[in-house]
Simulated scan of single mutants.
Amino acid sequence: MKIALFGGTGGTGKEFLKKALEEGYQVKMLARTPSKVSTNSPQLEIVKGDVLNAGDVSRTVEGTDVVVSLFGHVKGSPKWLQSDGTFNILSAMKTYGVKKIISLSGGGLPFEKDQPKFPDKLIRFIMKVAVPKVLNDAVRHAEVLKESGQKWVIVRGPRLTDEPEKGSYRVGWVGVNASTSIGRADLADFILTQVGSDEYIHQMPFISY
């Protein structure tokens, strides 16, 4: 199985790439700066480009079986980075007959199974005030996925840490069987499990310790 990977140079992306290669997957990865990719493997193909460039995205998706999208906002990112990038990815998926995408977002993105408690509501309020661009883009990117007709999963997480992998975590919803943090390595582990599973298709599981 060959994975088209977007956002593989970020914190969670690096962990995901490492795990995917260790488990024998072929990975075709888009990178704006290939020199940032420290991993060398015959299973890894790097495409130089930008997720906002439809041609670069198309070259990355071509010949793959599933998409894993882990890119997100950094300082100076365009307002609709995630939405527009996801639209490009979905267009390429339709061109090449790729049916499934797993996308990463945060707990501020609401889902119908959530039962947010006061702290969760407070965090969402703070996000709306402090980083409205990120939250609005996350919501719009979810709408783009819902309207695509594709098999999608949006994996959400709380505060991300760089702590060593624990090998155990909870899969719940905001306010339901959930805590306030997750290590990037364990989050990447769950994302990789979704490559071969349809358990959470058209859902937004929340992963935490």
Rank of each mutant, 00 (worst) to 15 (best):
V155S: 09
M127G: 08
F87C: 03
D56L: 11
M93A: 07
V37R: 00
S148K: 08
M93H: 08
V37Y: 01
V67R: 08
G10L: 11
I102R: 05
Q43P: 04
I89C: 05
M29V: 08
H141G: 00
L17D: 10
N40E: 15
G11A: 06
P205S: 06
Y96E: 04
S69L: 11
G63M: 13
H141I: 00
S83Q: 10
A188N: 12
I126C: 06
F6E: 02
T60A: 11
E22W: 00
S41Y: 04
T9W: 03
K19S: 04
S35I: 01
S41C: 05
D189C: 04
F111T: 03
F206K: 02
N53H: 05
W173Y: 15
T12Y: 01
E147Q: 14
V68M: 13
D114F: 09
G97M: 11
A20Y: 10
S105H: 13
R59F: 01
L70W: 08
A31W: 01
G108H: 09
T180G: 00
E165D: 03
S91H: 10
I3C: 14
G13V: 09
K128S: 14
D114W: 01
G196K: 14
A92W: 09
I101G: 04
E62A: 13
V153Q: 11
K99N: 13
Y25R: 03
N88D: 04
Q43G: 02
V139M: 15
E22T: 02
K99C: 03
P42H: 09
N53I: 02
K117Y: 05
F190M: 07
D198H: 02
I89V: 15
I182L: 15
S179N: 14
V61I: 14
G172T: 07
M204W: 05
Y25W: 11
I123Y: 15
T39G: 00
L145C: 12
L5F: 12
Q203D: 14
A92M: 01
W80G: 01
V67W: 09
V144N: 08
L44R: 04
V139R: 09
Q194N: 12
V174T: 10
D162Q: 07
V131K: 12
V131S: 07
I201H: 10
K100G: 09
K2R: 15
V144D: 08
K151H: 14
G85V: 14
G175T: 03
P34K: 00
D189S: 15
G106E: 13
R32Q: 08
V144A: 07
D120E: 15
G106P: 13
P158Y: 07
L81K: 04
V176N: 01
G97P: 10
